[in-house]
């Protein structure tokens, strides 16, 4: 496959190209800056003292430099390391399995000769509209499937997402029918067509959907909150967000005037800076891993290259 070629091929440098370049650089640069600045504030805030932040608000540089927030996060480094390991395993395993199921399903739903595809699409899509709420789901996981305090309670709920399925389906729809028909004439079965013909053509789509599944696993704390009891099994986000959520919950609580003073004085944690430090701890690894995914977004697909 053509290595680092821009998908646009060779373009002449006319006035229109220059105009577009000015717009593209200008616009993307501006958007990127708008996204970067607040993040820098969060970074600076995470290294500031709690007092300075409440007093002066956010800024681009740390105020009254302090690592107090990180000390709170890493109170118990072994727990953090274990939580990282749990999350990484879950993310990798879940993304792989999820991609397999979703690609396979999307492939079938995208096949035009499958007359029932609309009925099945509806069968899946319908579940995004209606939900029975938290109680029945909690009972399903906790009692019916008896997954309480099991890693499966973290893996299964995020394994399959209809959104990702339908996005994947739309990408597969973009593949010319002639390619698939050619494979069938060559005697390929459905599964082989999928693996050998379709999958190489949808690498950007696999990267995208894979990224979304991975992010969902990476960011998930809610399932852990509901189903995981043993501290050794906490994934990273739950370990961290437990602290933030507790602060938020506590703040909501003491806003209630009737709560007794013993309850009020039972919590004493840095609030703003801790939240920001957690954002950094959570985002860091993703930012480092992102370029590996990114290469699929900067490289075009040449359909001719995979034929035959």
């Amino acid at each position: 496959m053509a290595a680092e070629r821009s998908h646009l091929g060779k373009v002449r440098k006319g006035g229109d190209v220059i105009a577009l370049n000015i717009i593209a650089y200008g616009f993307c640069g501006l958007v990127a800056l708008l996204c970067l600045v607040p993040f820098l504030m969060v970074l600076a805030g995470s290294f500031s003292s709690e007092q300075a932040i409440t007093q002066n608000g956010f800024s681009l540089l740390p105020q009254d430099f302090s690592v107090e927030a990180y000390k709170t996060v890493f109170r118990d480094p072994m727990v953090v390391v274990r939580a990282y390991a749990t999350t990484i395993c879950l993310t990798i395993g879940g993304t792989f399995l999820g991609l397999c199921i979703q690609t396979m399903t999307a492939y079938v739903l995208a096949r035009k000769e499958f007359e029932w595809r609309n009925a099945f699409s509806f069968f899946f899509y319908f579940t995004t509209l209606f939900s029975g709420g938290l109680v029945p789901y909690y009972i399903l996981i906790n009692q019916t499937l008896n997954l309480r305090d099991s890693y499966l309670a973290l893996l299964l709920p995020l394994l399959f997402s209809v959104y990702n399925l339908l996005i994947m389906k739309s990408y597969i729809l973009g593949i010319p029918d002639s390619l698939i028909d050619a494979a069938k004439i060559d005697g390929c079965g459905e599964f082989r067509t999928l693996v050998q013909v379709v999958v190489p053509l949808i690498k950007p789509a696999l990267a995208t959907v894979g990224l979304f599944i991975a992010l969902a696993y990476w960011n998930d704390w809610y399932n852990a909150m509901l189903y995981i009891k043993t501290e050794e099994k906490y994934p990273l986000q739950y370990f961290l967000y437990q602290q933030v959520n507790n602060i938020e919950g506590y703040k909501k609580l003491i806003a209630n005037g009737s709560v007794s003073s013993a309850v009020v004085s039972s919590v004493n944690l840095p609030t703003q800076t801790l939240k920001m430090a957690l954002t950094i701890v959570v985002t860091g690894p993703i930012v480092l891993a992102y370029p590996f995914v990114q290469k699929y977004f900067v490289q075009g697909i040449t359909i001719g290259a995979v034929k035959g």
Binding site: C28, G29, V31, A32, L33, C35, L36, P38, F39, V42, L215, V244, E248, K275, M276, T279, V282, T283, I286, V287, Y290, P291, Q294, F297, V298
Partner: peptide, 18 residues
Amino acid sequence: RKVSQSLMFLPYFISWVI
């Protein structure tokens, strides 16, 4: 291209609370 695309992803990680 790569850097600006990465930067645009950052707000996704900042929780609504912040």
